[in-house]
Computed example of a mutant assay.
Amino acid sequence: MPGVNAVPDISPMPRHQHLIVTVYGLYARAHDGAFAVSDLIQLLSDLGVESAGVRSSVSRLKKRGVLVSLRKDGSAAYRLAPGLEDVFRAGDERIFSPHRARKGDDWILTSFSVPESQRHLRHKLRSILTRIGCGQVSPGLWIAPGNLADEVSQQLERAALMEYVDLFKAAHLTEDHIRSKVGQWWDLPSLDALYADFIDRHEPVLQRWSELPPSEPESPEYLKQAFADYVPMVTQWRRLPYMDPGLPEEYLPGDWSGLAAEALFAKLHSLLGPIARRYARSVVED
């Protein structure tokens, strides 16, 4: 579809590498960013991943520069690579405290021109803008709600691409057409389908936990089950806020699944997050 910011084709079931990144993002930073290999294998086994799968995925993440090896208390360990702390901190806000723009807010426009001899940079630039959640107005002009201006600027500066880019704050002057234009700039049906899949998978989880009696003891199995439900839920969710830039509700379809998915995520995060953290801490500190 011309002009549409296509939603990446992602598997609804988290891959092992994605689960590992989630575990590090949620829990490793409280432990100097590092996990002993044995602790990581234990945590991932509670998510249904065999030790061979953990070691293979860790090896791939190491090659990608996400993890680095070290010794921790005399044991083999892996930690987040230096420089990723800022990335994870920014991710915390985008994932756990999403901001939805309001009708009438400014937009940020990203205009770029890359010489033909450096086409690889053009692809890199488009990939970054897509990952942030920008929509494509035309091949060299991309748009996003204005509250993403700092993130767009920071990402492009980190990638050393600002010399090819001009950034503008803008207001849309043809308000009557903005809703149809939003449908051209973003692939809303595909994104809605991902939100609907999230609801289908995790609404039964909320129902199951909501039906537990208030006096349910926090046994090791209780804590482990919260961890096993929470981490895959966050793993599936954490990419969605980056595909959805937080468009104003007035510009979204009337039956938009994203709003219900946001509410579901917030409830599960509030309910299971603290319990899952206690379980992870019990494994790492035991």
Results as ranks from 00 to 15, higher is better:
residue 3 G to L: 08
residue 6 A to E: 09
residue 9 D to V: 14
residue 12 P to D: 00
residue 16 H to M: 04
residue 17 Q to K: 14
residue 17 Q to W: 02
residue 18 H to S: 14
residue 21 V to R: 15
residue 25 G to F: 00
residue 30 A to T: 07
residue 32 D to T: 12
residue 33 G to T: 09
residue 36 A to I: 04
residue 40 L to S: 01
residue 46 D to S: 15
residue 47 L to A: 03
residue 49 V to K: 06
residue 49 V to Y: 05
residue 51 S to H: 11
residue 51 S to E: 13
residue 52 A to D: 11
residue 53 G to N: 07
residue 53 G to E: 12
residue 57 S to W: 06
residue 58 V to Y: 02
residue 63 K to I: 09
residue 68 V to C: 05
residue 71 R to I: 12
residue 73 D to G: 12
residue 76 A to Q: 10
residue 76 A to M: 07
residue 78 Y to P: 05
residue 80 L to H: 02
residue 81 A to I: 05
residue 84 L to R: 12
residue 85 E to H: 09
residue 88 F to M: 11
residue 96 F to T: 06
residue 100 R to V: 13
residue 100 R to D: 07
residue 100 R to Q: 12
residue 101 A to W: 09
residue 104 G to N: 11
residue 105 D to Y: 02
residue 112 F to M: 09
residue 113 S to Y: 10
residue 114 V to L: 04
residue 121 L to Q: 09
residue 130 T to Q: 12
residue 133 G to M: 00
residue 135 G to E: 00
residue 139 P to H: 06
residue 139 P to E: 11
residue 141 L to I: 11
residue 142 W to Q: 04
residue 143 I to C: 13
residue 143 I to R: 03
residue 145 P to S: 00
residue 150 D to I: 05
residue 153 S to L: 12
residue 156 L to K: 01
residue 164 Y to C: 05
residue 168 F to K: 03
residue 170 A to Y: 06
residue 171 A to G: 09
residue 177 H to V: 09
residue 178 I to Y: 08
residue 178 I to V: 14
residue 180 S to Y: 07
residue 180 S to F: 06
residue 180 S to A: 15
residue 181 K to T: 04
residue 186 W to D: 06
residue 186 W to N: 04
residue 187 D to I: 02
residue 189 P to L: 08
residue 189 P to G: 05
residue 191 L to Y: 05
residue 195 Y to S: 09
residue 199 I to R: 12
residue 199 I to Q: 08
residue 203 E to F: 10
residue 206 L to Q: 13
residue 208 R to P: 03
residue 209 W to R: 11
residue 209 W to D: 05
residue 210 S to W: 01
residue 213 P to R: 13
residue 214 P to F: 08
residue 214 P to W: 07
residue 221 E to D: 15
residue 222 Y to A: 08
residue 223 L to Y: 06
residue 230 Y to D: 06
residue 231 V to T: 09
residue 232 P to A: 04
residue 233 M to I: 08
residue 243 M to H: 09
residue 245 P to R: 04
residue 250 E to G: 02
residue 251 Y to S: 01
residue 252 L to G: 06
residue 252 L to M: 15
residue 257 S to R: 14
residue 259 L to Y: 09
residue 260 A to P: 00
residue 266 A to G: 10
residue 271 L to Q: 14
residue 273 G to Q: 03
residue 273 G to D: 01
residue 276 A to M: 02
residue 278 R to P: 07
residue 279 Y to D: 02
residue 281 R to S: 03
